[in-house]
Design a protein around this nucleic acid. Structure first.
Lengths: 212, 212
DNA sequence: TCAAGAATTGACCCATGGGACAATAAAAAG
DNA sequence: CTTTTTATTGTCCCATGGGTCAATTCTTGA
């Protein structure tokens, strides 16, 4: 029997067939419930029902409610992340890398109110859940690093840092807008918005150096 | 005995002395609990305890939990709003108006993680609470209008609209960042970030018209 | 000073939710 | 074909939380 360790929540491969599949189903069910009910209304029974199973099974695979939703957060993040990664692979110039991040963050089928609602509910728990906070930090760090890999070719290190912060904030803000007022911002608008932000900041930079 | 009518939820005039004061205390207590516990952990008993009263009194003043937190949202918003209004009164040029909105949104004593956490929790409920959604729309509309009152003097109507959206999103995003990683963004950074965004967008505009 | 009405409390009810567990079905291993 | 593990269920328990209510204390206006 071979040995492998992938990561904490995708471990044994042989066991994966059943055990890991169930876990994934349950994570996804948890997320779906979150979309509909929010964190306050998300109950183990509802998650079980959503997955077509019994409440007992949920607690068989996850120590408790908290752990379940932490895994749901990882799951959701993984999906979001995948979209960006895929695009990054096709990007070569710095600008292409930026665009990959931007457009990956606003993929048509992801940039939707329900996903945003669930995400919001999870974010709202971050301050009280150290594990979630850690996940959140990782997400942000990766986002930042993806952006910097492009930005470093376009601006000074200090500016790159600053612009990266602005871009992440702007992206989050646009998602929030979508969640709070579905339909108030389209995918195209969002993408354009971020691209304009970057173009504007870079233009400022040019003006400053050229005009000086 | 003087008379006043403030607004819909501060109605009866004589009753205000006691009734309205308690209501305010309870709204604030509700908000304080939200800061600590999030929406999932916010219970009527905790709110009562926070206010130094009994659970019964909470339901004496508010029909139910939902209504209580809707009022808490109004309360919080009113505070935020006041900060901007005060600064707007002292602003006269378009640019000053923009700065008033920006700096008002990042006042030192308001731009703090706990406030942000509570706010996040409320936002997470918006999709399932029509009243909250309405409050949210009002908040956003006012913010937008405040921004446009300055922006109209600085850009074309279409650009003004677009920049206003960007600014609100950026502000929200910076708040979110603060909530998710306390200490990761200072008030000064936030203000600078938004001002740079505006400057950049306006610079783009100039380049486009000048270069054409 | 007294009556009407508000403020406030604590006890109570009931539904729900998280979690433990024993019992059973299904697989896997031998 | 057994034995041992794993999957899965349904039941049970208990704490908690929202909401009602009657009873009591306070205000206040006449």
């Amino acid at each position: 029997m071979s040995t492998w360790i992938r990561d904490a929540w995708t471990d044994p491969v042989k066991l994966k067939r059943l055990s890991e599949i169930r876990r994934k189903e349950l994570r996804q069910a948890a997320f779906a419930v979150l979309e509909r009910e929010g964190i306050a209304g998300a109950t183990l029974e509802k998650v079980a029902a959503q997955a077509g199973a019994s409440k007992g099974i949920v607690l068989h695979y996850f120590r408790n409610k908290q752990e379940l939703f932490e895994h749901a957060m990882r799951e959701a993040n993984a999906v979001l992340c995948q979209a960006v990664i895929a695009r990054l692979r096709r990007a070569h110039t710095p600008m292409e890398r930026m665009d990959a991040v931007i457009e990956g963050n606003f993929e048509e089928h992801l940039f939707q109110p329900p996903l945003c609602h669930a995400w919001l509910s999870l974010c709202a728990e971050v301050p009280r859940d150290e594990k979630m906070a850690r996940i959140q930090r990782v997400i942000h760090a990766r986002m930042r690093s993806n952006l910097l890999s492009g930005l470093r070719g376009l601006a000074s290190p200090a500016d790159a840092d600053d612009i990266a912060l602005g871009v992440t904030a702007l992206i989050d803000g646009l998602w929030l807008r979508l969640g709070l007022q579905p339909g108030s911002v389209s995918r195209e608008q969002a993408v354009r918005q971020v691209k304009n932000y970057i173009a504007g900041r870079l233009a400022l930079r040019e003006l400053a150096t050229a005009g000086a």
